[in-house]
Amino acid sequence: MKSAVILFPGINRERDMARALEAVTGEKPAIVWHTETTLPKVDLVAVPGGFSYGDYLRCGAIAARSPIMTDVRAKAAKGLKVLGVCNGFQILTEAGLLPGALLRNSGLKFVCREVKLKVENTRTFFTNRMKQGDVVRCPVAHGEGNYVCDADTLKALEDENRIIFRYAEETNPNGATSDIAGIMNMEGNVIGMMPHPENMIEPLHGNSDCRPLFESLLAA
């Protein structure tokens, strides 16, 4: 499986994501600088976490308008799999690849801790090795992870089984609507989530709860 990780100024989790992808798939991802205009031929594009452009204007707002995102949108429209984590989730919503928006955490403070995620949909390219209702540990690190959307969008996400992860056991760290931690687009090839699964895949991380998520990429 070939993959690419997009690198924006201020992003700081690109190495974590690249390490996780290489550890599980056996293929070293291409690192693509944001000013490039064409993606390499890959099966997956990952948009990692961090603080692109210092989170000025809105988180992800500037990065979403970087040159490389034009090709990301074009190839996503043709079925390319795209995974956005934390700031990557914010970038994907700003780019119009996912609905809704990420606002300041309800407590107005940056949150860095472990949460529990409930797997709501196992029929995706990132969860097919999981079981419905599985609860896994996963770290978060964000100040603007409060997912919001209008009532019609929320109904569509619920009805179409497009909510992939919810915060479980009262561990919602940001006040996100309906405890939403991760969603996908209507076509099922674009996924965004706030927690950092790439930081919980090996014993040195404390546990490997999230490794099956990356193993799902191979199965897909």
Rank of each mutant, 00 (worst) to 15 (best):
L102R: 07
P99T: 15
V140D: 02
F89W: 07
N105G: 14
V115A: 10
L117G: 04
L117D: 04
A74S: 09
F125T: 05
A77N: 06
F110G: 02
P40E: 11
A77F: 06
V85W: 03
V136P: 00
P48N: 09
D55V: 11
P29M: 05
L97Y: 13
L80Q: 05
G49W: 13
N87I: 03
T124H: 10
R123C: 14
T70E: 13
P48Q: 12
R65Y: 00
V119L: 02
D43F: 02
R104H: 11
T93V: 15
C112P: 01
P29F: 03
L39E: 06
T70I: 10
I68L: 12
K41L: 05
V42N: 00
F126P: 00
K131F: 07
P99S: 12
A77I: 10
A141E: 00
L102C: 12
N105A: 13
Q90S: 11
A46I: 06
A76R: 05
A95H: 02
A64N: 09
G54C: 10
V135P: 01
D134T: 03
D71W: 08
F89S: 10
E120Y: 11
L102Q: 10
I31S: 07
G60R: 05
S66W: 14
A30I: 10
T38M: 14
N105D: 14
